[in-house]
Every structure is written in structure tokens, then in C-alpha cells.
Simulated scan of single mutants.
Amino acid sequence: MTTALDQALDELAGRRPLLLASDYDGVLARLRDDPAAAVPEPGVGELLARLATVDGVTVALVSGRGVADLQATSGLTGPFRWVGSHGAEFDGPLTGDLAVRRDQLAAALAPLVEAVPGARLEQKPAGAAVHVRTVADRAAADQLLADVAAGPGADPALTAKPGKDVLELAVTDADKGSALLRLREELGAQGALYLGDDVTDEDGFRALAPDGVTIKVGDGDTAAAHRVPDLDGVRAVLERLAAALRA
């Protein structure tokens, strides 16, 4: 951990109300070919639960997964705030016209995905995602994502959320940045932290700038103010926070 990050965490721990938020996949759990196998790293659940018990501290999980999927896969329990589908699932599941559009989108994507061995279509509460992590033919994987972007994804009413070996299309324009700002305003938070590893987390980093403590996990260009190399670095951040908060 850098000296700058250590100092930022120490200063953050003195603020109340305090929002501590994190992405899930690639941050609290390792990325897996089978998303259902992405369980939290050892000890992470206990650390989050300890942090959430501190007076004036709110721990939030902000994920591209649907809330129900996130809760079931993670097995995490505690007084957490759950934000799913990149902020679209904030007050409950989609209903009405948005739900109809979501189902129509999945139907349009299905034949494209079925034509590429190893590709997978995931229907999400606010849209659908095309996964190519397990496509052996990488040229075919790239072409599928390009075809999705140029085909169904070209609809201006949809919001494209590219990620690592995945392209998600959502029927709302919610993102992790808007979700974090909403949480911060709702809580009246005087301090905020966000951990993320993927392209969609950049919205969160930008939203909390310049006062929030934003931490990129892994390599790549980022708007985050700080960086840790891997999930061991994430654990070190959580442990440092727990010590500073005496959790």
C-alpha cells in the first residue's frame, strides 16, 4: 500500500457519516469463468461485516449483477446496502415497459450468441450481457462483441457497458456513478470510498472525485486516485480501515 493511500484511509476514517462501497467481481471475489462460482475471498465477509457495525458507517455492494444474484452468489450477510445492475436496481426490480424492453433485448441477442461456441448470454434485471471469456476462438469472440455493438447495441435507447470479455446492454441509463452519488446524498455522507476493477467502475471513480477515496484494483488506465495490484491489496485496504475505525 502506498503512503498516499495509507494517509487517505487514515483521514477518511475520521469522517461521519461514512460510505464504504465496493464492486464485487474482481474486487471482493476472483473473476471466474462460471460467475456462480465467484465466492468472496477468505475473510472478506467478516471484514465487511465488522466495518458495517461501526456507528455512522455504511457498507454498500455496487455491482453489475442483479441484487438477488449478488446476494445468492456472495452469501454475504450483514447490514449492507445492495445496489445491482449498475445502479438500475436501487429501489427494486424493473417493471412495466422497461421489463418488456429487457426481455425483447435478450431475444434479439440470443441467436447471435448461440452461433459462437463458448459464448454465453446472461439475462440481467435491467438488460442482458454477452460473455466471451470462455470462447476459445478469440477472433470470433471479438467479432461477436462487435456484431452485438453494431446490431442490437446500436439502439440509442440502450446503454452499453463494456467490460472484460463482456458487453452489457441496459435498458436504463443508470450507472455506478449515479448510484454512488445517490447513496452519498441519501446518507449525507461526509466521506466516501469506492473500490473497483472494471471499465464500469470508472463512472464511480469520476463521480466521487475529487474528495472521495477511489481505488482501482489491477492494471489499466483509470480515473481513480489510488491503486492496489490485486485482491490481496483489497484485503489490506479493508484491514487498514478496520484498524483505523477500531472495528
Rank of each mutant, 00 (worst) to 15 (best):
D142W: 06
A149Q: 02
P156Q: 04
G151P: 08
R133C: 02
A128L: 11
D142I: 00
R133Q: 10
H131F: 07
V148W: 01
A141M: 06
G127D: 14
G151R: 07
P125S: 13
Q123T: 15
A136F: 01
R138I: 00
R138V: 04
H131G: 07
V130M: 08
G153S: 05
R138F: 06
L144W: 05
A140P: 08
A140F: 06
G153P: 10
P152F: 08
Q143F: 03
A146I: 02
P156N: 06
A129M: 08
D147C: 00
R133T: 02
A128S: 13
A154I: 02
A157I: 09
A128V: 09
A149G: 00
A150I: 01
D137I: 01
A140N: 08
A157Y: 15
A136P: 03
R138N: 05
K124D: 15
Q143V: 00
G151H: 07
G153A: 08
A129K: 11
A150Q: 10
P152T: 07
G127M: 13
A146C: 02
A126N: 14
A146K: 05
Q143P: 01
H131M: 07
A141E: 05
A146P: 08
T134F: 03
G151V: 02
A140I: 01
T134I: 00
D155G: 09
L145R: 03
L144I: 00
D142P: 01
D137F: 06
L144D: 00
A128P: 12
A126S: 15
A126M: 13
P152Q: 11
A157L: 14
A129I: 03
A136C: 00
A154V: 02
P125H: 13
G151D: 05
A154M: 03
Q123V: 15
A157T: 15
A139Y: 10
L144H: 04
A139Q: 14
A149E: 04
H131D: 10
P156M: 07
A146G: 04
A140C: 04
A154Y: 10
A157Q: 15
K124F: 14
R133P: 11
Q123A: 14
H131P: 11
Q123H: 12
L145K: 02
A129T: 08
A129F: 09
K124H: 15
L145V: 01
P156H: 06
L144A: 01
V132N: 06
Q143W: 08
R138C: 00
D142K: 05
A150G: 07
T134W: 09
P156T: 03
V135R: 07
A139R: 13
A140H: 09
A141Y: 06
A139F: 12
T134H: 13
K124E: 14
A129N: 11
P152W: 06
H131V: 01
A149S: 04
V148G: 02
A146Q: 07
K124A: 12
D137T: 06
G153I: 06
P156A: 04
A154H: 10
R133N: 09
D137L: 04
G127N: 14
A136G: 00
T134G: 00
P125V: 08
R138A: 04
H131T: 03
P152G: 09
A146E: 07
T134D: 14
A150W: 03
Q143E: 12
A129P: 12
A141P: 08
G127S: 13
A126D: 15
G153N: 07
R133H: 10
A139T: 14
L145S: 01
D137G: 05
V130S: 09
A129Q: 11
K124Q: 15
P152H: 09
L145W: 03
A141R: 03
